[in-house]
């Protein structure tokens, strides 16, 4: 057990270091695109309100989640009502008061298509 735990301890930090090194390299190769440049109004957002074409506004940013819906842990039908709408509440509470994980928030960034027009995010 002593050797196993020590090996795991070393392997753990090696993995963390590898991951950080990979990130450093990856960032160099993939500079940010113009994601988030577009300003989107609530009217425009409301057009994308189906499972096949689903946009959501969350905390001032707009995301195109059409490709993601099939991958979501709970069935897509739970999310469709939020399509085309300001969905911060859904993201922050999952409908029962629990926030999504840091991983979920990070994944969300990859689907960003623009910023919600000023003043449009008020509930």
């Amino acid at each position: 057990m002593k050797k196993l735990c020590y090996s795991a301890f070393v392997a753990f930090w090696s993995s963390i270091a590898t991951l950080l090194a990979l990130q450093a390299v990856a960032t160099d190769e993939a500079p940010d695109t113009q994601a988030g440049a577009a300003v989107i109004s609530l009217e425009e957002l409301a057009v994308h309100n189906s499972e096949a074409d689903c946009w959501m506004a969350i905390e001032g940013k707009v995301y195109n989640l059409s490709d993601y819906l099939p991958k979501h842990p709970t069935p897509a039908s739970m999310l469709v009502p939020w399509c085309g709408k300001e969905a911060t509440e859904g993201m922050r509470t999952k409908g029962y008061g629990r926030d999504h994980s840091p991983m979920a928030w990070e994944m969300l960034q990859t689907y960003e298509v623009g910023t919600l027009a000023d003043g449009a995010s008020a509930d």
Partner: peptide, 29 residues
């Protein structure tokens, strides 16, 4: 201890499908 060492690494690897950046953010938000 072994399980708790695996815990963050597995979650981070799971996020690597999105991007390496996502994998790192899971560990260091």
């Amino acid at each position: 201890f072994l399980l708790l060492l695996a815990h963050p690494l597995l979650l981070s690897l799971a996020a690597a499908e999105v991007s390496i950046g996502a994998a790192v953010t899971v560990l260091f938000p």
